[in-house]
């Protein structure tokens, strides 16, 4: 009788151990099956692009593809800059001053003429259209989000401002994105 109880305890342990090993095995096989769908090494490595700002006329916008997404570089007019800088951002959905949305040039100052953004609406990823909408900035035709001349969300369903990509000035007129 006593002998049988000992046997049962051993058996439970063996069941549990076997189950644990099997579960670990299934998990370790499942992980590659799931992870393969992530970004591949070549997609990750899709490097940086250099943009020459001198070629962009005042009041016009350059669109370039970076990591499959459009990057907007707008050479803003003095009126647009004034509008972006003088705005009272405290009541905006995503408060950010214009300077916070720019990157310093080699001289350490920001150059408000050039606004660099990812041209993807923060709602569902459409490409907003320039010089449209209620605030003279960008307007997303998909679900009606309005951005101002600094790319800040003012009206519509988008939750945040148009994103700023990682970039730096490598000279006064050339930037590197990525």
């Amino acid at each position: 009788m006593q002998n049988e109880q000992v046997e049962e305890g051993r058996r439970d342990f063996i069941y549990l151990a076997t189950g644990a090993v099997a579960a670990a095995g299934v998990a370790s096989v499942t992980w590659p099956l799931v992870a393969q769908m992530g970004k591949a090494a070549d997609t990750r490595a899709a490097g940086s692009i250099e943009i020459d700002l001198a070629g962009i006329a005042e009041g016009s916008q350059l669109k370039m593809l970076w990591r499959g997404k459009p990057v907007f570089v707008r050479h803003r007019t003095p009126e647009e800059i004034a509008e972006a800088e003088n705005a009272d951002v405290s009541r905006y959905p995503d408060p950010q001053t214009d300077t916070e949305r720019l990157v310093p040039t080699p001289s350490g100052e920001v150059n408000p003429k050039y606004l660099v953004m990812i041209g993807v609406c923060t709602h569902f990823g459409c490409v907003p259209v320039g010089e449209q909408g209620d605030y003279g900035g960008w307007y997303c035709p998909c679900h009606g989000s309005h951005y101002d001349t600094s790319g800040r969300i003012r009206k519509g369903p988008a939750p945040t401002n148009l994103a700023i990509p990682p970039y730096e000035y490598i000279s006064d007129t050339v930037i590197r994105v990525g």
């Binding site: 769908m37 970004k39 997609t43 899709a46 990591r67 499959g68 997404k69």
Partner: peptide, 13 residues
């Protein structure tokens, strides 16, 4: 989202 797309945006993957 990037896991579903296999990239930063809708692409060949």
């Amino acid at each position: 989202q990037q896991w579903l797309l296999g990239g930063f945006s809708v692409n060949n993957a």
